[in-house]
Design a protein around this nucleic acid. Structure first.
Lengths: 346, 346
DNA sequence: ATGAAAGCGCTAACAA
DNA sequence: TTGTTAGCGCTTTCAT
């Protein structure tokens, strides 16, 4: 196993694994610049030279050094992507949209996970900037002031993804969480529900969920309804949260007609609780939430919820950045929209 | 919005956003080398000089350029991470373990998603190598021969994660999928089950699932049982898959006693189908699978399954790489183990 | 404890 | 179409 010897060779530069432009140039009998041009697909090289160079590249198994390239051209092919969590499936879904789009353009994503900590997020951004990314995609619209300072100063385009903001740092791609929750509340009121309960994660951490909660309860009150029970739990949002905490939520009031959950994972857990406890949904208790996750739509009763275009938002974010890098002027604000899903839990 | 002007300034180098070592050095009245030493935490600098430098760094809002640093030192602080998918929650969970470990050490992950395509995986690896990563973590143990060639030649440590292999390219961290499936089959046989069915994703794409299927059916046959129905579907593994395809699996044979699913997502969908159709589990039909996902354990009946240590495998992979970079000699093969979960679906 | 010189591997700009 | 020159911003090595 040659690996073990490879580490620390003090005082001696490692061969970087695969030769240099110079070696290829010599092998092909041309200058470094010509090789560089061929490799970057510049058109002003004759086919003959092209072939020679490509043969040499293949023969030597040459892999270009993008660190050097990025340094010389001040153009990196990496994007920084900062998300709050990998445990909540919505972020990997956004990430999937991002990587799909980037891959086709030869870019790569460097990821940072803030664990919903804005201080940590700011540190991550600072660290990421040292790679001189070609662009930055960051989840949500609330950031530490240091983070905002850095991002504003960034020469690279920035996209805030997930939430819509009136005044993004640079660009934003997302949906109006308040509007989504308002629409949900209106539909539920129209259906006759009046006594609402809320179950969710800590609203200080997940700001988008906080906006939804606010929009929802405002609308409920305005519409003659009441929030008769509320439970927010400071633990990772997920199915387990809904499953474990429904009992104590329901214990808060005997008159809950419907539970609005912070997202589909929580709502799915809540529905599982009801199924396990023999609570008839929606007859005895109704459920609604937000996300449109596969799990929620696969339940014996599909959830009444809002579908957020997660993959699409990721893809659009990456596209906006690439557009900017290609000299275009994409819209600063992109409303990715959402869709109400009339399930069977209401 | 200053952003819009920032893109393509033809012929003019962008200021890279934040000054250079040289500017800091001038501001602090020392040489570049001294600043470099302070920034990298070298000890042989006097406290007085240190303070001056740090003041200058803060005053200028200097952010070091790691591209230049990596080029000069031939040591990057980035790891390449290649996974087959972001839609299957197990990979984000592994990724979470990786990023958690890397973050504390100041490293960052560059990610590539192969979509279960080995050709694409090989291309991704080649592309990633051009960033001269300090290490490479790649999911699974089966790769395109070009990929193997590149990885073997890599001066950076390589970890194959998820599956255990007898002869890893460099190192591996994982669990024995065959063994896990064998154990599951043995327990089910002991419980009296004889007529088995299999429901899962395409076994050519998900090699680990293939190993489990093989181990499971081998054991079933050896133990006097029978595989009376099999359905593999070439679509992304997930809850929806299980939910949608149970009907046609069950139509294959009237005498199925138990369904073994390729993983917990599929099994959860299958269980939801049963709940929706009023099939009594485990009386009329039993269910078992593999993963130990939160969703499966939150179902009204927790799944009988195997818990795979996904976060832990990610963490360990990153740790092995960092150990190597720090001159240690970690074990080539790390068995992360697994745990049988006796649920209520059998 | 500090500094000067010499690149790392590549690309922009200009020349031929 | 091709080549030459001069860095990109940093770290290594070797002096002092």
């Amino acid at each position: 196993m040659p690996k073990t010897e490879t580490k620390n060779r003090p005082g001696k530069r490692i061969s970087s694994g695969s030769g240099t432009l110079n070696e290829v140039a010599k092998a092909a009998g041309v200058s470094e610049m010509t090789v560089s041009r061929v490799l970057r697909g510049k058109t002003n090289v004759s086919q003959k030279t092209r072939d020679k160079v490509q043969a040499a590249v293949k023969a030597l198994g040459y892999v270009p050094n993008r660190l050097a390239g990025a340094l010389a051209s001040a153009k990196s092919m990496q994007l920084a992507v900062i998300i709050p969590s990998l445990r909540n499936i919505v972020f990997p879904e956004v990430l999937a949209g991002i990587t799909d789009c980037l891959d086709t353009a030869g870019y790569h994503a460097v990821i940072g996970v803030s664990e919903y900590d804005l201080g940590r997020e700011a540190e991550l951004i600072a660290a990421m900037m040292s790679w001189r990314p070609a662009g930055i995609i960051i989840a949500n619209a609330q950031h530490h002031r240091d983070a905002v300072t850095i991002l504003r100063a960034s020469p690279a385009p920035v996209v805030e993804v997930m939430e819509l903001t009136r005044k993004p740092i640079d660009m934003c791609v997302g949906l109006d969480h308040r509007k989504a929750a308002v629409m949900t509340a209106e539909r539920l009121l129209k259906k006759g529900y009046r006594r609402f309960a809320y179950l969710g994660c800590d609203l200080q951490r997940d700001k988008a969920a906080g906006k939804r909660f606010k929009g929802f309860s405002d609308t409920v009150l305005k519409g003659g309804g009441k929030m008769v029970a509320e439970l927010t739990v400071d633990e990772p949002s997920g199915i387990g949260l809904g499953r474990r905490h429904m009992a104590s939520l329901l214990a808060q009031s005997a008159k809950i007609e419907i539970v609005y959950a912070s997202n589909d994972a929580v709502a799915s857990g809540a529905l599982m609780y009801c199924l396990a406890e023999g609570i008839s949904v929606p007859r005895e208790l109704a459920l609604a939430s937000f996300s449109g996750l596969e799990v929620g739509q696969s339940m014996p009763l599909p959830l009444t919820t809002i579908r957020s275009p997660r993959y699409e938002m990721g893809r659009l974010s990456a596209e906006r950045i690439l557009d900017r890098l290609n000299g275009k002027t994409p819209p600063r604000i992109t409303d990715a929209g959402f869709e109400f899903i009339e399930g069977e839990t209401t």
